[in-house]
Amino acid sequence: MISFIIPIYNTKLELLKRCFSSILELKHLKYEVLLIDDGSEKFIEEFCKDFIKDYSNFYFFRKENEGVSRARNLGIKLAKGNYVFFIDSDDTIVAESLDSLKLEKDTDLVLFDFELIEKEKKKEIKVLDIINKKNFNLKDIVLEFLINSDLNAPWAKIYHRQFLLKNHIIFNKEIVTGEDLNFNLDCLMCNPKIIYEKKVVYNYYREEISSRNRLLKYKERLIGNYNYLEKKKLKILSKLDLDFQEKIFFIKNIVSLKIKNIFNTIIDAEEEKILTLNFKNKIEENIREDLKNIKYTNFFTKLRYFLMYFKLWIIIKIVGKFRKLYLKVRRAKI
């Protein structure tokens, strides 16, 4: 049996209905659905309880608002299925693909493709191109997770629940960004048996959701989280048997992503007028160790890094204005 775990926080009712209805299209798979209400407004609880009245395998749980990581952890704890499948409450599953799934008993993690839907445009995302190689192993998959953001999310994956419990794998409630990737890296470091199914089982509806509230509430923790994830990736990389050129390639990608994330956070903070002295000091503290690896990155990453390293905040502000204009034009073309 599969336990579908759906964290809910003030999701629009029509999106909740869309999500739940996609699961009800399953005809052969044995499953349960755990709705974890993370302290939503009361009408969400009323809607969910009313919806599930006719479905004995849907269960509703309400908790105080503590974030999606705690909600998912509660779902893992309460689940009765051998496997768990996480769903975001504004997304849907492809029931036809999951209905035909046959799982081997010793499988710990199953990876699937998904469909990205944005402004009514659809794009199929094939998450593991390495599968085209004649031979691949856990190392190949770990390397993909280190640089392929399409693999970050916990959805479009099936996890063996006992594997998670046995290895004490949970979502880190202290992380405010990158908690999904952190969870998956923890899974990989416990040497799971992995299967990749080349089928779309999940529809990811991406919308332009502002990260403003998270920035205002957690700006310094965001910087720390980017640094934490970079260190974790580099530590994992150091344990893998790679030649020098391979290692440099992955170092370049890992460091570049962190520098880009921090640089963009500075621009957003400047726009919100919260680029405080403490925040600047936090940035300086969290990019200091990157100096030894910055030589492996491209020109634009080096430029971002040294603008931060030499505290050229005015220039960063000007770059931010051009970035804002660029994003506006790009979105208009979508």
Rank of each mutant, 00 (worst) to 15 (best):
F61A: 01
I87K: 13
L188W: 00
V127F: 01
K260W: 12
I93T: 02
S211W: 12
E246W: 01
K139A: 07
D37G: 01
K119A: 14
E66T: 15
S149G: 02
K77L: 07
I2T: 10
V329M: 10
L312H: 06
I314F: 15
I287L: 08
W313M: 05
N191H: 06
A332V: 03
L275A: 10
I170E: 12
F51G: 09
I262T: 09
K27W: 03
L128W: 11
I262V: 10
K102Y: 15
K292F: 07
Y204S: 02
K63V: 14
L143H: 05
I316E: 06
L215C: 01
H168V: 02
F61R: 04
I274R: 04
Y83G: 00
A156K: 04
I87A: 07
K77N: 06
L188M: 03
I147H: 08
F250W: 10
L165G: 08
A95H: 14
R288F: 14
F60E: 06
R214F: 10
L216P: 04
Y205M: 00
G320L: 03
M189W: 03
L240V: 07
L138G: 02
I175S: 01
N261L: 06
D50P: 00
K105C: 06
I251E: 14
S89L: 04
W155M: 11
E104A: 05
A156Y: 13
P192E: 00
T92F: 10
S3Y: 09
L242D: 11
I175Y: 01
F86N: 06
K311R: 15
K260D: 10
C190Y: 11
H168E: 14
L181W: 00
K302W: 09
L237G: 08
M1L: 11
V142D: 05
V201T: 12
Y326D: 00
T301H: 09
L275E: 07
D180M: 03
H168P: 00
I334A: 10
C19D: 13
K121V: 07
F61D: 01
K121Q: 14
K102E: 15
L98E: 05
I141G: 00
R62S: 14
I266K: 09
A95D: 01
Y309L: 13
I318H: 10
W155D: 12
R221I: 15
K233T: 13
D268I: 03
K235V: 04
L24H: 12
K311H: 15
E272K: 14
F183K: 04
